[in-house]
Design a protein around this nucleic acid. Sequence first.
DNA 1: GACACCGTGTTGGATATTCAACAAACAGTT
DNA 2: AACTGTTTGTTGAATATCCAACACGGTGTC
Lengths: 191, 191
Amino acid sequence: MPDKLDRRKKYTRMVLKDSLIQLMNEKTFSSITVKEVCVLADINRSTFYTHFTDVHDLLYSIEEEIIEEMNKYLNAFHFIVEEESIQMTEKLLVYIKERKEIFEALLENNTGTSFEKRVMDIARLFLINKTDTANIDAASYLSTFIVSGAIHVIKDWLLIDQTQSPKQMAELISQFCNKGLGSMENEKSRE
Amino acid sequence: MPDKLDRRKKYTRMVLKDSLIQLMNEKTFSSITVKEVCVLADINRSTFYTHFTDVHDLLYSIEEEIIEEMNKYLNAFHFIVEEESIQMTEKLLVYIKERKEIFEALLENNTGTSFEKRVMDIARLFLINKTDTANIDAASYLSTFIVSGAIHVIKDWLLIDQTQSPKQMAELISQFCNKGLGSMENEKSRE
DNA sequence: GACACCGTGTTGGATATTCAACAAACAGTT
DNA sequence: AACTGTTTGTTGAATATCCAACACGGTGTC
């Protein structure tokens, strides 16, 4: 919201985040020190503490950014028709793939509220909005099921093969979700 | 010398230089504005004026940096034997090639003391040091000849073909210079 | 245990950058 | 000629960062 950030603040936060991301690609998160991050970012250590309390806090702010970006993609779903949703999913997957290492680090690292849980929360919210509001409980359960399924499919895709293109994955996941949503429609009509 | 520059100063100067270099690759030098450079560098315009008086001044400081770097290479010649000098020349050429666009811009752009003249000056100094001090005048004239020749050979190489590798060019230029220096030796022995 | 070493938070004064605003010069338009 | 838009230098107060120094806790070594 406070997009009216001072140029200097923006820059400092950016390089610190980038440093941590780079370091996470080289070593385990728990072995990374504040000092290390600052040296790489070429930022005075005392400045670090005016922005973040510690390395976890910095990681958390990276999460924030990622989550926010994913939210944009998901929000866009509301305004598009079925055929375009596959393309949208593809964009999301490309975004994830380009940040492969960050996502892996975030999924592995369980500090505080896990990244996975937060992603599920926003995705669930999205799914509930998308379906009819009459049957919220069912939608909630089902969306948990669908989203956790999707996340693990993406996780495997990231970690293991990636022989499938983002486009192919998008179609696969889209099918997967629609089947789930479809079953809920049946559920409702049977009432 | 004042290598004890504040981190912020270093960063500001660096991004401003980089911006100008990038812009010089996209448009003519004279069409580049201070504002443009600052926008690209994401630096406040008023900050620009605490470091440089105008765009020419900024360009000049880029020259300084380049000249300084070339000086290092040339100074290194003093301490190496003949066989290694070809490798050294090669390094210098690789350095130039990596900054092809900057050199082209600097060679084209004649503001104030031309870049070409300055390079010749430092190269001449180097050559005079390298040869016997007895015959300074002759060395000076000859070095002007050699260096200007070398610069234009390099210029052509940069601008036109580059089918020759830096290594091949290094051997060629080295031959070229040694022949010149050799002739000076003859000159002296004939006295 | 005593020791040295290293990372952590925190502080205060010095310094650099930002931002908004201004007058001035200039180029193009009507 | 008046108007519009743009770049240029310059200013002062607000803000962010730097830097050096400190006390503290942990870790390993003799």
